[in-house]
Simulated assay, not measured.
Amino acid sequence: MVLISLTMVLILVVAAAVVAYVAFPHRGQQMPVMPWLGDAMHKTVESMPTGATPEDFYEHAETSLR
């Protein structure tokens, strides 16, 4: 029972972090209560390698398949 409770708490913390990132730093705004957390999230996202942009991803596809 304790393991399930801890897992649920971890899931809620991760979900809250995603919501906080989407609500503020992703849109270029500072988080009102914890600006250091928004800065840390922004630096983490900037340092992660990303794949091709969506425009580049579909460039090689045939027009009839779109």
Score class of each variant (00 low, 15 high):
residue 19 V to Y: 15
residue 30 Q to Y: 04
residue 3 L to C: 04
residue 40 A to E: 02
residue 20 A to H: 08
residue 51 G to I: 02
residue 50 T to V: 09
residue 18 V to R: 08
residue 53 T to K: 05
residue 36 W to I: 13
residue 3 L to I: 15
residue 21 Y to M: 07
residue 11 I to D: 09
residue 26 H to S: 10
residue 40 A to C: 05
residue 47 S to L: 05
residue 41 M to R: 02
residue 29 Q to K: 13
residue 1 M to Q: 05
residue 37 L to G: 01
residue 7 T to F: 05
residue 35 P to V: 03
residue 11 I to N: 10
residue 47 S to A: 09
residue 6 L to P: 00
residue 34 M to C: 10
residue 19 V to A: 13
residue 34 M to P: 03
residue 18 V to D: 03
residue 30 Q to E: 04
residue 23 A to G: 06
residue 15 A to N: 05
residue 63 T to R: 12
residue 40 A to K: 08
residue 25 P to Y: 00
residue 16 A to C: 14
residue 16 A to P: 04
residue 19 V to K: 12
residue 5 S to H: 06
residue 5 S to N: 10
residue 10 L to N: 10
residue 7 T to Q: 08
residue 64 S to G: 10
residue 54 P to Y: 02
residue 43 K to D: 04
residue 47 S to P: 01
residue 53 T to Y: 00
residue 42 H to K: 14
residue 4 I to T: 03
residue 44 T to K: 09
residue 19 V to D: 15
residue 45 V to E: 08
residue 23 A to S: 07
residue 5 S to P: 03
residue 11 I to Y: 10
residue 37 L to T: 05
residue 4 I to M: 01
residue 10 L to S: 13
residue 64 S to H: 11
residue 61 A to C: 15
residue 33 V to F: 04
residue 50 T to P: 03
residue 28 G to Q: 03
residue 56 D to M: 04
residue 3 L to D: 08
residue 38 G to P: 00
residue 22 V to C: 08
residue 58 Y to C: 06
residue 64 S to P: 08
residue 22 V to R: 12
residue 59 E to K: 07
residue 32 P to F: 04
residue 3 L to M: 03
residue 19 V to P: 06
residue 63 T to I: 10
residue 9 V to Y: 03
residue 13 V to S: 10
residue 45 V to I: 02
residue 21 Y to W: 12
residue 23 A to P: 02
residue 23 A to D: 11
residue 66 R to S: 06
residue 21 Y to V: 05
residue 61 A to M: 14
residue 29 Q to W: 13
residue 60 H to L: 11
residue 61 A to E: 14
residue 26 H to P: 02
residue 11 I to T: 11
residue 44 T to S: 12
residue 13 V to R: 14
residue 60 H to D: 13
residue 40 A to L: 07
residue 32 P to Q: 06
residue 36 W to G: 15
residue 62 E to Q: 13
residue 14 V to Y: 08
residue 16 A to I: 06
residue 65 L to Q: 14
residue 35 P to W: 01
residue 26 H to R: 14
residue 39 D to I: 13
residue 31 M to E: 01
residue 58 Y to G: 07
residue 12 L to Y: 09
residue 58 Y to A: 08
residue 13 V to W: 06
residue 12 L to C: 10
residue 17 A to R: 13
residue 53 T to N: 11
residue 15 A to M: 04
residue 40 A to I: 03
residue 21 Y to D: 07
residue 7 T to V: 10
residue 5 S to R: 07
residue 33 V to H: 04
